[in-house]
Design a binder for these strands. Structure first.
Ligand SMILES: Nc1ccn([C@H]2C[C@H](O)[C@@H](COP(=O)(O)OP(=O)(O)OP(=O)(O)O)O2)c(=O)n1
Length: 1090
DNA sequence: GCCACCTCCTAA
DNA sequence: TAAGTTAGGAGGTGGC
């Protein structure tokens, strides 16, 4: 290893002062106090980093500060062990008989990984917890029959597991008094059998036997059973039974656990503290009060660079990994404690970072493995690490046969495991991913988190950083990376700076978006481990809560089969959307909205699995204790038996209420957005409780609950409309007969026909209270806001100025229209936004019309940036599986033929532009990759953009406001299709010079021999030449300005710009100007020839 | 040119 | 338990 000498001076000249966005005030300090500027030439780093450097040099040893704070000696006889657990797994092994008495040869052993308040890592081996499930006991089943069933199961299981080294498979069958969660049950409890197995894998086997039918010898008959909770993952089972929720604090009391000394040869993990404990000794602290705190866990952020062969995207079987950047940050601290980059081949030093250089990838990989083990992170973050960085490292090490590389989990000698997986859900879409197991360390891929939490049209790190951090990051094309690697220590240093930046950015996103805090809260509220929140869907969260609540109430959750034979059977009716009285409303329109409608319906009417009363059993309950929902299903009322779904909802809405309170207290706009995201996530979790009951391909569908919920909702919106319209009318002394002009699911838009906002608010509040009184608690109709003016286009599409106070409007709010959609191009988005702003805010219709006409003219004259014309659409399934031809799909297939490694995959968004093609060509034949179109000078089909993307949206917003909106699209501005000259664009510079020689002054075709001006224009030669020169000068100036802007972005003013970001408008503009400049220079050259 | 159907994305 | 729900507008394709 060649450890670099560190130098104080940076790599070169000093760049411009780092540009930070202004305006967010103290926000940055609070949330992103750490702010490493990975600008190549920023030499004025924080002073403490210099000191750190100095100390390192004194010691001459990198990696010196990698370790966690030293762990105190653990004395189980004197001290309890308290830590925040973050991850739980289990393995099957020989029992530890000092904490678990058993005759079994192999048992499951739970491992809880976590961090103490002092920041020491812990792995606790929790022993003695046994897998089990239940079945209902037959009525004539007695305690004596338990052994008989147990023996029978044991024999059957033994036959199926002949190779297993095990003394007993079914450990016990125990009679217990429990009740099912399904349907209202008058009896408090009845007999169930708990079937306890030796290991978790036997649960599914035994379940199968019980379901398909098993002979109960002592009763002398064969019976099939419905099983209960036989489908609960072992880890979740353990957490539920021990009341451990994701990320909470646990405690092992004095004398209840055994500790291994740090250097004990029997230690099985790399954690600082390793203990063994019986699960019965575990104390779990609910995450409230002092236990709401967060331990200083360690976060490793990682990014790698690879050198692809010429023109190819890197392939781990062929191309080397050349750099790995890592930062280590302790949660709660403002700056990383380690910033390290490991490079293949030499690399000049970087101020504020450790640089380690290696001669071989082999050494590089192994040293990085050591870094992980030595820094011992609890959480590994990065951008797209799950699909790129981590798999690449693992595959690369395999290719190079670095056999001891894949061992950076916390369990010694335990190899990383990786397999292909797919996640598919309607809300989150379908994604392929690599499931990687790194024992004891959570992976938190920021890309996955941001894709789930934010709807963006591009999820490149570049686009995401720009969006959330107000900071561009260059997109260095993979071929350039190879060039930099093949240069010298300085070019590799430049690469290392990018690499470091890509490791720093995810950490900054985590900080700024408060990901650790928000995800911990979600894990604690829903009870699942934090890692589930990114790898699993909503179902597991709801299921976890149901299981917990059920356990509290001694209820069991049945494992029911998919009903309706295949799943895609009949659905159920959802919400009512009131017909939209479309138009442009020049008076205030009040919006009334039920708070958390479906959850509140379920709470108010006690809708639950455990309160559902089948029609056949109606007479078991006094009629006054039964409620019939509008869909005809019956439920017992709360005073008779309280359901558990309502209780779960109470907790979720409680958490949401707290989040909303925080939101209300916040002033910083960015912080507000983050807190809004937090309360939104909790709202979706609450709504998913309803969704869970309606998920026919799911764990526990119960359409009686979901369809009752929507049926109540439908009744409520109709009732609300009636009551409001009946009350607020002239006949009752109000100014006018009000009108509900629209409403969707839980809202009504009321036109009170009053002139001022304040009066509309007054009436809105009054109406909301009036309506609320007619409903059962906690159902509440709220006055939310006023729209004034209000443009109602159709169902689910409207725009308006939003007022929450009568003094001034808050903002323009648009729903469903192009401004908030990701499947149209920026041009349309911008034109529609600006037009609406002019119409609604400035009330300047003429200005809006003028603007639209100019835009259309610009479009047709080919004056649009390509970046404005890029459309993106998601690839929602495998490209082959589409039934029809679609532009983005065909392009994805085409791109895969060009270069499979960089082509879009399922779940990705595909950006494309529409290019000119033969008349009558289908849109899917005209779609092209924007970068490809740019590089090959393919002409844009401007007319197509006007006809298919711009005109309809514009007509829709202008039609209600003006007469003859169609004329917008047919004026003189639409005839200026002059200079667009696709032949020029498609031919490129060379063709221009050769083929189409026309007079540079008047465009007349030149006679052979002439190269620049026709006879007539030659008289004005000087003037024309001057014009050409001016043109060139202007282009040069704008090119230079754009270039500088890109240099700023990449953080150095003296280096070449390497960025080719598909997401950056500056990039497209720079390319366009570059092309124009080339053409203009070619023109000048013709003068020279002449 | 009409229309059924697929696809995407959004509102709730 | 692998996977929250339905309603609805709009564009495009392809059969007729
Ligand atoms: N992701 C969503 C959003 C909404 N809904 C259903 C359930 C909601 O109760 C109802 C109304 O949706 P809103 O968006 O108005 O949200 P809420 O009424 O739940 O919350 P808020 O208090 O913000 O109005 O639509 C849903 O099932 N899933």
């Amino acid at each position: 290893m060649m450890d670099n000498k560190r130098s104080w001076q940076g790599g070169g000249s000093k760049g411009p002062p780092a540009k930070r966005p202004s305006g967010s005030g103290g926000m940055d300090d609070d949330l992103v106090a750490q702010s490493f500027e990975a600008d190549a030439d920023v030499a004025d780093e924080d002073i403490d980093l210099h000191i750190e450097e100095e100390m390192e040099i004194d010691l001459g040893e990198a990696g010196r500060n990698w370790e966690r704070p030293a762990a105190p000696a653990i004395n189980p006889q004197k001290d309890p062990l308290v830590f925040q657990q973050l991850e739980v797994d289990y393995f099957v092994g020989a029992p530890n008989r000092s904490v678990h008495r058993t005759d079994l040869l192999e048992v499951p052993i739970i491992r809880m990984y976590g961090v103490t308040a002092a920041g020491n890592s812990v792995c606790a081996f929790v022993h003695g917890f046994e897998p089990y499930f239940h079945v209902e006991a037959p009525s004539d089943f007695g305690p004596d029959d338990c052994d008989s069933l147990c023996d029978h199961l044991n024999r059957r299981l033994k036959e199926r597991n002949l190779k297993a080294r095990q003394s007993k498979f079914c450990v016990a069958v125990v009679m217990e008094q429990k009740q099912t969660i399904m349907h209202y049950q008058a009896a408090k409890s009845k007999a169930f059998l708990r079937i306890v197995l030796a290991t978790p894998n036997l649960v599914a086997q035994a379940r199968g036997m019980m379901e398909t039918g098993i002979k109960i010898d002592s009763l002398n008959r064969t019976m099939g059973f419905v099983t209960y909770e036989s489908n609960v993952l072992f880890v979740l089972r353990f957490m539920i039974d021990c009341q451990v929720v994701g990320g909470n604090w646990v405690e092992f009391p004095v004398n209840c656990y055994k500790s291994l000394a740090p250097h004990d040869g029997n230690k099985m993990t790399h954690c600082q503290i390793e203990v063994h404990v019986n699960y019965k000794s575990l104390i779990s602290h609910p995450a409230e009060g002092e236990w709401a705190k967060v331990a200083p866990f360690r976060i490793l952020s990682v990014d790698i660079e690879c050198a692809g062969r010429k023109g190819c995207f890197p392939d781990a079987e062929k191309d080397p990994v050349i750099q790995i950047a890592s930062t280590i940050t302790n949660q709660g601290e403002p700056a990383p404690v380690v910033k390290n980059v490991m490079t293949l081949n030499t690399c000049a030093s970087i101020v504020g970072a450790e640089v380690m250089s290696f001669q071989t990838e082999h050494e590089l990989l192994k040293r990085w493995r050591d870094l992980v083990v030595e820094t011992d992170p609890d959480i590994i973050i990065g951008y797209n690490i799950q699909n790129f960085d981590l798999p690449y490292l693992i595959k690369r090490a395999e290719t190079l046969q670095v056999a001891d590389f894949p061992f950076w989990g916390r369990i010694k000698k335990s190899k990383l495991r990786m397999r292909d997986a797919q996640f598919s859900s309607k809300a989150y879409g379908t994604h392929d991913y690599k499931e990687i197991t790194i024992d004891g360390r959570i992976q938190f891929d920021l890309m996955v988190a941001i894709q789930r939490d934010h709807k963006l049209s591009s999820y490149s790190l570049n686009a995401v950083s720009a969006h959330f951090l107000n900071e561009q990051k260059e997109d260095v094309h993979h071929s350039i990376i190879t060039d930099l690697q093949n240069g010298n220590a300085e070019t590799r240093r430049r690469l290392a700076v990018y690499c470091l930046k890509d490791a720093v950015l995810p950490q900054r996103l985590v900080d700024k978006l408060m990901y650790m805090y928000n995800y911990l809260e979600m894990a604690r509220v829903t009870g699942v481990p934090m890692s589930y929140l990114l790898t699993r869907g909503q179902s597991i969260k709801v299921f976890s809560q149901i299981l917990r609540k059920a356990r509290e109430k001694n209820l069991l959750v049945p494992n029911i089969k998919v009903q309706g034979g295949g799943g895609d059977g009949v659905g159920y009716e959802g919400a009512t959307v009131l017909d939209a009285k479309q138009g442009y409303y020049r008076e205030p329109v009040a919006t009334l909205d039920f708070a958390s409608l479906y959850p509140s319906i379920m709470m108010a009417h006690n809708l639950c699995y455990s309160t559902l009363l089948p029609a056949s059993r109606l007479r078991e309950v006094p009629p006054e204790d039964v409620l019939r929902s509008p869909s005809g299903d019956t439920f017992v009322r709360a005073h008779h038996a309280k359901g558990i779904l309502p209780e779960i909802l109470e907790e979720l809405l409680g958490a949401r209420k707290r989040a909303k309170a925080d939101l209300k207290a916040a002033t910083d706009p960015f912080l507000k957005a983050v807190l809004d995201g937090r309360q939104l996530a909790l709202k979706v979790s609450a709504n998913s409780v309803y969704g869970f009951t309606g998920a026919t391909i799911g764990k526990m569908p119960c359409l009686e609950i979901s369809s009752s919920t929507t049926a109540y909702g439908r009744e409520m919106i109709m009732h609300t409309r009636e009551l409001v319209q009946k009350t607020y009318c002239r006949a009752n002394g109000y100014e006018a007969d009000c009108e509900v002009i629209y409403g969707d699911t839980d809202s009504v838009m009321v036109n009170f026909k009053v002139a001022d906002v304040a009066r509309a608010m007054e009436l809105g509040k009054e109406a909301a209270d009036l309506v609320s009184k007619t409903f059962v608690k906690p159902i509440k109709l709220e006055f939310e806001k006023v729209y004034y003016p209000y443009l109602l286009i159709s169902k689910k599409r409207y725009a308006g100025l939003l007022w929450t106070s009568p003094e001034k409007h808050d903002k323009m709010d648009t729903k469903g229209i192009e401004t908030v959609r990701r499947d149209n191009c920026l041009l349309v988005k911008n034109v529609v936004t600006t037009s609406l702003e002019k119409m609604l805010i400035e009330r300047d219709l003429a200005g809006a019309i003028e603007f639209v006409k100019n835009t259309i003219s610009d479009l047709l004259m080919n004056r649009m940036d390509l970046s404005l014309l890029v459309i993106t659409k998601g690839l929602t399934q495998e490209a082959e599986n589409y039934a029809t031809n679609a532009a983005h799909v065909e392009l994805a297939k085409k791109m895969r033929k060009r270069d499979a490694a960089t082509a879009p995959n399922v779940g990705d968004r595909v950006p494309y532009v529409i290019i000119k093609a033969a008349k009558g060509a289908k849109a899917y034949e005209k779609a092209e990759d924007p970068i490809y179109a740019l590089e090959h000078n393919l002409p844009i089909d401007c007319q197509h953009y006007l006809d298919h993307h711009l005109s309809q949206p514009l007509l829709r917003i202008f039609d209600p406001i003006m007469k003859n909106a169609k004329e917008l699209l047919s004026g003189a501005h639409t005839r200026s299709i002059t200079v667009s000259t696709p032949s020029l664009a498609s031919g490129g510079i060379m063709k221009f010079a050769k083929v189409r020689l026309s007079c540079l002054g008047c465009k007349a075709t030149l006679p052979p021999g002439e190269t620049s001006l026709c006879k007539h224009c030659q008289t004005k030669e000087a003037e024309i030449y001057q014009k050409m020169l001016t043109n060139v000068n202007e282009l040069e100036a704008s090119f230079s300005a754009l270039w500088t802007q890109c240099q700023r972005c990449q953080g150095s003013l003296h280096l070449d710009v390497l960025c080719t970001s598909r997401d950056c408008p500056i990039f497209y503009r720079r390319k366009k100007v570059q092309k124009d400049l080339g053409e203009a220079n070619a023109v000048i050259a013709r003068f020279a020839d002449w």
